[in-house]
Design a protein around this nucleic acid. Structure first.
Lengths: 141, 141
DNA sequence: AATACAAATGAGAATGATTATCATTTGTTA
DNA sequence: TAACAAATGATAATCATTCTCATTTGTATT
């Protein structure tokens, strides 16, 4: 675990809440977590962290580039560890399961379409809403 | 104006608020309007419509296929007249100006990437956040 | 045109996610 | 170890949106 270095590099003090939250993302089986989920996970393991702190830390980690935030259409945000490589998301409409994909041709065409219109692209969101095939998905496809 | 027919076709009563809102979308110079903007526009023209009604009607129109809702990352939704043809959006980060584009190759690749993973695609959101070149945009590019 | 009734409306309360406030606690640095 | 800014937790506040419910309005019927 080189978490402490990550935090120092980002100019953030080494505090318990921050270490716990970062640790959660690095060890959880679920790659995509909402603020509420992070909060509940911490509570369930006996940690005493306030919800406000969870939101604050998540936002700081996003700004520091440690996490990436995804806004979904249901109005909720989830966070994921920044792997450094961009990717888009497929979200199951039934169970919320999230899968990632990357298509260089789509990326290139986004860039082209945007610059053709005189815009300077800053970032983009490509979310595909679909029905997945997971065992426990309430949608029996 | 064949608005009344549109409403009847959708199984909606012809009420003043509904006609006014639909009319607004068909005559406004701004194609993309938020609920708040619709509400303010109506107030400014002396119409007496409640904000709750605006939200209700907007949702009904969306379900009836008259309008399309776009959720942006800032947590706000805008609505636009349904032209029947799908398109994606470029949003200016400074002034909020919205532009539309369509790239069949991007569409095709979304479909391919999704089905390859065993998902049945239902819909998607492709929003590009950029800096625009409008005269009145606070961003002097 | 008057009646009847469900559907629609408006005002304001309620909600849910997120952010701000502020007194108290905790890292860090001298 | 003192000293002080930064961080935290509890809670209030905010913002967009939805819900509640008493009142009003289309519409279909006499």
């Amino acid at each position: 675990m080189q978490q402490p270095e990550d935090l120092k590099k980002a100019g953030l003090k080494l505090t318990l809440p921050r270490l716990k939250i970062l640790n959660l993302f690095e060890n959880s089986s679920e790659r995509h977590l909402s603020a509420e989920e992070v909060y509940k996970q911490l509570l369930s393991t006996g940690e005493d962290v306030g919800l406000a702190t969870v939101y604050r830390v998540l936002t700081q980690f996003e700004q520091a580039g440690l996490l990436v935030r995804q806004h979904f259409d249901n109005g909720k945000s989830v966070f994921e560890l920044n792997k450094g490589e961009h990717h888009d998301h497929i979200v199951c409409l039934q169970c919320g399961h999230v899968e990632e994909f990357y298509d260089p041709e789509i990326e290139a065409r986004q860039e082209r379409n945007t610059s053709e219109r005189g815009f300077a692209i800053q970032e983009h969101v490509l979310h595909i809403y679909a029905n997945c095939v997971k065992e426990n998905c309430p949608n029996k496809t």
